[in-house]
């Protein structure tokens, strides 16, 4: 890879800008999408590789190209700088998620508790969420147990294309939450997006175990695994 290509790729990644690197095989000539002008077939394949977040090969005019997407990291936004949020930090980092913790209670959201790998936001959750603008590469998890903090965050998250929205709390707590969200004008279909109680049912007890069950469900949702699909009857049953 030419030094110039590598530094352009490096700069785009540092800026969190999605780019795709196209490599001609076997001679290794390289182009960057969308920065370089590409034939339409290659540009289309590069855009598709970025959207699917999966590398692919393509043959154009007898030439083979390898297309490698470089998307910015997935995001995990956690509302509530609680013990489970602390346990999520190393797991989210290891799985490649950039983690943001939202909590207006300043005693909780401190760098002392969370270290430098986490972005801490002490705004009110609805304002924070509106500014963080969850996209299709974002998971949102509420952990405060406090409707004053969790509900406003969920209201914003449910209007966003976040790929996962989970809320800590028992079935009873969640039933009350659904009633409040309905009152706030959210539809049943909106609320059905909430994974609650949050996380896969692995019998988690400790904070790290709960964090593991949450990240397992986030990964399942991201990868489209059957485990991530919850249906209403199933909720009743378990």
């Amino acid at each position: 890879m030419k030094a110039e290509t590598f530094s352009r790729l490096h700069a785009a990644r540092a800026q969190g800008r999605p780019v795709a690197l196209l490599t001609r095989l076997p001679d290794g000539a390289q182009l960057l999408h969308p920065d370089d002008t590409l034939p339409p077939a290659l540009a289309g394949a590069a855009a598709a590789a970025l959207a699917a977040d999966a590398a692919r090969t393509l043959s154009v005019d007898g030439q083979d190209w390898f297309i490698q997407p470089h998307n910015p990291p997935l995001r995990l936004i956690v509302v509530g700088a609680v013990h489970v949020a602390q346990a999520l930090v190393p797991m989210a980092a290891g799985l490649g998620y950039a983690m943001t913790v939202v909590d207006p209670r300043r005693a909780f959201a401190t760098e002392e508790r969370f270290g430098a790998r986490v972005t801490l936001v002490d705004d009110w959750p609805d304002e924070a969420m509106a500014r963080l603008a969850p996209d299709p590469r974002t998971a949102v998890v509420t952990l405060t147990h406090d409707p004053k903090l969790d509900d406003p965050a969920l209201e914003v998250a449910l209007k966003s294309p976040a790929f996962y929205i989970g809320a800590l709390g028992s079935r009873k707590t969640h039933a009350k939450r659904l009633a409040r969200l309905a009152e706030a004008g959210l539809t049943g279909a909106d609320c059905a997006r909430i994974a609650a109680p949050v996380g896969l049912a692995i019998g988690a007890v400790t904070a790290p175990e709960i964090a593991l069950s949450i990240m397992a469900e986030v990964v399942a949702a991201r990868r489209g695994a059957a485990l991530a699909r919850r249906s209403a009857p199933e909720l009743e049953k378990t």
């Binding site: 590598f6 790729l9 490096h10 990644r13 977040d53 490698q68 997407p69 470089h70 998307n71 990291p73 997935l74 799985l95 490649g96 998620y97």
Partner: peptide, 12 residues
């Protein structure tokens, strides 16, 4: 796919 991104950072 953060793991490969990480590798580019290590390489750099």
């Amino acid at each position: 796919m953060s793991d490969q991104d990480d590798i580019l950072s290590i390489a750099a």
